[in-house]
Amino acid sequence: MNYIFIFLIVVSFLCAAINHRLDVAIDEMLKASQKAVEISFGLIGIMGFWLGIVKIAQKSGLMDLLSKLIQKPLLLIFPDIKYNKEAQSNIALNISANALGLSNAATPFGIKAMENLQSQNKDSEVATNSMCTFLAINTAGFQIVPAVVIAILSANGMENPTQIILPTLIVTSIAFLSALFFAKILERFYR
């Protein structure tokens, strides 16, 4: 991460200098840091709401029920969470919310799952194998129906925007599986 951070910033300034866009780059840089704070604050409400709902499901025992249902396939991907029931159900909720296109709900589930995984982490600053796998499949963005994109296409007058559903589903499944594959392979090389 240190290298990516330094590389992106240094290379960006170099390119900006070559393209005579230093003024734009500096402007965008400062705007982005402002926007990061706005996005975080914008998350408070939605996140609070879903965390509240999740907590009810947790206290009433619904989450344990869910974790029993999906335990087997989940343990194949995340072998070290066998005794971490909460992590199991939060990961399951995160993946299903993403699949349904409810990204607002998926984020709080995902963060809860990360907290659960963190609770069994020996070094709290270094990601575990399961954390990396979980993050990788989240960045692949698996979803069954790309609702936002379809809305944009139909708003612009495409004849039948649903024609993109099947190709998108195939592509997102390939991306999902390859994320899983790369995470599992790479974890051997990053100790």
């Binding site: 991460m1 963190q118 709290s124 600053e125 990396c132 990788a136």
Partner: peptide, 9 residues
Amino acid sequence: VGIKKFRHA
């Protein structure tokens, strides 16, 4: 969760 080292993620 305060993870600073992303490893291969």
